[in-house]
Amino acid sequence: MMGLEGFQQEIMMMAGRGIVPWALYYEFVFNAVICALIIGPVLGALGTMVVAKRMAFFSQAVGNAALTGVAIGVLIGESYTSPYISMFSFCILFALLLNFTRNHTKMASDTLIGVFLSISLALGASLLLFISAKVNTHILESILFGSILTVNQLDISVLFFVSVLVLATGIPLFNRMLLSSLNPALAHVRGVKVQLMEYIFVLMITVVTVACVKIIGAVLVEALLLIPAAAARNLNRSLGGFMLWSVIFSVSSCLMGIIIPMQFDIPIPSGGAIILCAACFFLITSLMRGFMPQFREAKI
C-alpha cells in the first residue's frame, strides 16, 4: 500500500493547488474514490451479465442478507465497522442455499428470490433491532445506505481482492455463463457445466455485493449492478458497446456520487448519491432511445 500512499500525497498536493476537486484533499474522500475506481468497472461489467441473466433481484436478496451478516458479526464480537467474516460467510451460505433451492424446485425464479429476499430482510431487520442497543444507529444507517466516511484500508484491500477474483473468474467464463442463460441445453451440448456456471455466477454476485456494502449500502448495491447496465442497453446494439458503456456509466456514477456531495456540501449518503447519478444516466439514455431513431431497435 506504499504506492497508494505516495499517490495519495500527490493527489492531496494537486487538490491543494486546485488542479483536482478540493474534496480529494481528505483521506476518506481519496479512499472512497479509489473504491469507486475499483468497484465501478466490476459492477458495470457484472451488471451486463445480471441484466442478461435476469438476476437483478438476486443481488437485492444478497444485499438484504448482508444485514443479517452484520448483525451476526456484532453478536459474535466482530468489529461492527467491518464484520466481513460473518457477512461473507452468511451471504455465501444464503446464496448457495437460494441457488440450490432454485435448482431443486420447479418454482419460478422470481417467486423464489422474492421469498428469500423477504426472509433475509425480516431476519436482518429483526437482528439489527436486537443489537441496536449495542451499536450507534449511524452504523446501521451506513450499512443500509453506504458511507464513505467509514471506508478504510481494510475495506479497500477487501474490495481490491474481491474485484480481481471476480474479474479473473468472470472474464474467461463470460461466454459460457451467457450461453447457459440463453439455452441451457445448447450450452450443455457445447460442454458447458451449466449448474456449475450458475453457482459460480451466484458466488460472484454475492462476494461483490458484500464487498460493496460499506460504500454503496446493502439496500442499494443491486441498483448499481442494474442501472448502469440498463442505461447502456438503451444505447447499444452489440455486446462490446453494452459492456463498455455499462462500465463507463458505473465508474462515472461512483465518482460523481462521491465527489459532487462533497464538493457542494450536500448531506446525503454516498450510496444514495451514486444511485441517483446512475439514475440520471438511465433517464438521459431512455430519452435518447425514445426520441433519437438511431437508438431505437427495428420492429419485426
Binding site: 461466454n175 451467457l178 442497453r233 446494439r237 455486446l239 462490446g240 453494452f242 463498455l244
Partner: peptide, 23 residues
C-alpha cells in the same frame, strides 16, 4: 432471452465458437 438484449448475430456466433469473451 430478453429480446432487447444487445447481442448481435456475430456476438452469438462468437459466444458459441470461442472461449475469449464475446464482447
Amino acid at each position: 432471452f430478453d429480446k432487447t438484449l444487445p447481442v448481435t448475430v456475430n456476438n452469438f456466433m462468437t459466444m458459441v465458437c470461442q472461449n475469449t469473451p464475446a464482447f
